[in-house]
Design a protein around this nucleic acid. Sequence first.
DNA 1: CCTTGATCTCAAGTTAACTTGAGGAATTAG
DNA 2: CTAATTCCTCAAGTTAACTTGAGATCAAGG
Lengths: 146, 146
Amino acid sequence: MAGLTIGDLADRTGLAVSAIRFYETHGIVAPVRNAGGHRRYGRHDLRRLSFVMAAQKLGFPLAEIAAHLAPLPPHKAPTKADWTRISKTFRRDIDDRIAALTDLRDKLDGCIGCGCLSLKSCALYNPADAKGKDGSGPRNLKQIAG
Amino acid sequence: MAGLTIGDLADRTGLAVSAIRFYETHGIVAPVRNAGGHRRYGRHDLRRLSFVMAAQKLGFPLAEIAAHLAPLPPHKAPTKADWTRISKTFRRDIDDRIAALTDLRDKLDGCIGCGCLSLKSCALYNPADAKGKDGSGPRNLKQIAG
DNA sequence: CCTTGATCTCAAGTTAACTTGAGGAATTAG
DNA sequence: CTAATTCCTCAAGTTAACTTGAGATCAAGG
């Protein structure tokens, strides 16, 4: 059981080799090294990366994803209980997100009805969420996640 | 009817003045200039910016949002028909997104059941969408939008 | 009229999430 | 045992979406 090479992982996940190395610097995978200094991964790393890919499709920032994965054992396969727990947390996040989208859709339906010509009563224009400024850099990812 | 200053717009939308100027370079607003070279906006620009903010919360990239707004008249208030049309398109996008999230949630439910211990049958691991590589830069926003 | 305060322009910095490239070793197929 | 792959590290480039700063001008209250 020599483990998987980074190329194997790339082939099986569809990720670029460079991306997998990048994820390592963010604590998402923690491969072991062989005699020649090459990375060797376990099958559980396939699962970690799949989770990352799924979560990213939802717009979650890497840091948050890494936090979700942090409690799992880094080198061994996690137990069924481990995965069940993190899956449930993830599910909660998805539910929140669906709720937010549904809410926005309903508001938009109102806008379609009114033609959005009245600013005072427009749900899109008055989203009931005020300011959320912190630091510099892109804002919208944080907004998605928040 | 002198129009709104950029500061007015910032106060009423919650956006930073710099952000509004930035949006101008991306064709999202097209203010007129007064004698002294200062920007003057109309009330319809409030609506444009609100739309941008709402769409961004959903993770849509600015370029796509700009494209949605492009068919609207830049300096005059759009007609009710204009807004209804773009609202409907937007709604379709929201629906797609809700569907994708719901789908993922269902898959995840399967994973919670199985403990995600079987890689071959894991819905998260086999998302039925293969590769989508184009150019450099961040990938996940494109993935969201795709 | 004069002093704040708001704007202007333009260049450069920032964060996230990666990719690309250079120069050099380790693996593996034949 | 080579030759071709694959992998290594490290620095630097890229895109999106803004922010920050400098130096200068415009506008508005007293």
